[in-house]
Amino acid sequence: MHGIRIGSLRRAVLAACQLCVVWSVCDAHPPAAPAEQYHALRQQYDRAASSGVPLTDAERLAFVGRVYKARSELAVKFLKLAEAHPDDPIALDALVQAVWQVNTVPWPVELVGEDPARARSFELLVRDHIDSARLAPLCLRVGNGFCQEYESFLRAVLASNRHAHVRGAACLPLGHLLYHRQQRIALCKEQPDLAEPFARLYGKEYIAELMRQDPQAVLKEAEGLLAQAAAEFAAVELPHGTNVGERARRELFELQHLRAGAPAPEIEGVDQHGTAFKLSDYRGKVVLLDFWSHV
């Protein structure tokens, strides 16, 4: 009796194990809906940047590297999700999240790693979602970056999206990107040791191509895009209570009057002792002008 019971127990355990194997073959749980998969990945993505402890400079740097790498790995998963469910509305959210990490600071590639999902994600964004009404936040975000894909994406949105608020949100950052990228490339031309980390991070060919561009032609195009944003898309609302017109006018002023190569606008004011003076009083000397604050 006893033997039989042990035997049947063993059989039951074995059967349960086999069942487990079968379950794991066809996935341990019923597959989550694409939206649920998206939200699970999104939680991991947001958690990747929470540190909670005070950090030294070296620790902070290592932390930056970890966050970039963790998010690049999650970007691959977001991309896979979008590729598996191209017709689900969540595919767009997943692709946007796959490219959400924008490299505003050119960290060394050794620190932050590669971003393998970026090129393909932008390909799918252009192929499947170029006419979406939901692209404005991504357009505004990538305008602060440097990658090759950002420029072609913004150009595609401006040319093909039928929603004026999205085209406006592409026109302004495209002008911003072209202008600021050109300024960085000018610095790289002057200091070749700056160009090398850029080439490692963004691609040697891409940087070489930017170096060959005519700076005046790039500035002219950037100026035209900002003027277009100020004229055609002025009323398009932006976060923080501003709009495209206001931002475009400020950027246009900066490009025309505050860029390297432009005569410095005069400053007339008083110093800390109440004595009046002007910036141009120092003509003949090199001036390092430091906008600073006591706090």
Binding site: R283, G284, L289
Partner: peptide
């Protein structure tokens, strides 16, 4: 924010 201006007043 820093601007470096040359002796002729050009940014």
């Amino acid at each position: 924010t820093f601007y470096l201006i040359d002796h002729q007043g050009v940014i």
